[in-house]
């Protein structure tokens, strides 16, 4: 079998790339894409630990399935907010959404 740490390495690299995308991109849609990459890295971790430490339990797979649900909800609401902000501010840069700033 492929050692567990290789999966963890890929997952950590994917998470770091996603973090960079979230922190550095100026476009709100690209920020959400970074969040999706991070969620996928977490899911690889969950499934890998399930497969290597407790394959006879169902918990790991069920958790991964719930992460899918959260990711779908997050993408739908996040993109709706971005489109709504774009309507009122004509910008997709999160820094321009400063209506609540005192």
């Amino acid at each position: 079998m492929i050692p567990l740490w290789l999966y963890l390495l890929v997952s950590a690299a994917l998470f770091s790339i996603g973090t960079f995308g979230v922190l550095a991109r100026r476009n709100g849609v690209a920020v959400l894409m970074g969040v999706e990459l991070m969620l996928n890295a977490v899911n690889i971790n969950l499934v890998a630990f399930w497969r290597y430490t407790a394959p006879s339990e169902i918990n790991g797979m069920a958790f991964a399935a719930f992460v899918f649900v959260i990711a779908a909800a997050e993408a739908a609401v996040g993109l709706a907010i971005i489109i709504s902000i774009y309507r009122s501010r004509h910008s997709v840069v999160p820094e321009d959404a400063s209506l609540l700033k005192g």
Partner: peptide
């Protein structure tokens, strides 16, 4: 989700 992102990219500037 990827199709949703495609829509968001096209609906915004």
């Amino acid at each position: 989700i990827a199709i949703l992102f495609t829509f968001a990219v096209m609906l915004t500037r």
